[in-house]
């Protein structure tokens, strides 16, 4: 029975709940400085992404490392373009 228990999925489920609650503290506790709030959000978001990729999507199990790296590079690139493009258009470059 032990092998049948989906240990990773349960860990991932609990992990993502805990991380979401941690991120929620930013709005629940008023008076946090902007820097601290932003740090909490970025750290929990990155950890959340790792939990999803490793525990649910089994990113480490693939044989084909080359296409894995290409996919990761493409994803990171599109993500960075979207985030920094938005910041550029909405905040930094605004007249």
């Amino acid at each position: 029975m032990k092998e049948l228990f989906p240990k990773e999925h349960v860990m991932g489920f609990i992990g993502s709940l805990v991380l979401t609650l941690a991120a929620l503290t930013v709005v629940m506790f008023k008076g946090m400085s902007n820097g601290v709030a932003l740090t909490i959000l970025i750290v929990t978001a990155a950890a959340q992404a790792l939990v999803q990729l490793v525990l649910f999507m089994h990113i480490g199990e693939t044989e084909d490392k080359k296409s894995l790296y290409i996919t990761i590079i493409y994803s990171v690139l599109v993500g960075l373009i979207t985030v920094f493009g938005t910041l550029l258009a909405m905040v930094w470059g605004y007249m």
Binding site: V78, I81, G85, A89, M90, G93, M95
Partner: peptide, 17 residues
């Protein structure tokens, strides 16, 4: 994924953007 801002050039962001 790199062109979307051209849908709202007239929104008021600067020349650089």
């Amino acid at each position: 994924f790199m062109v979307w801002v051209h849908h709202f050039y007239t929104m008021g962001h600067g020349v650089m953007v």
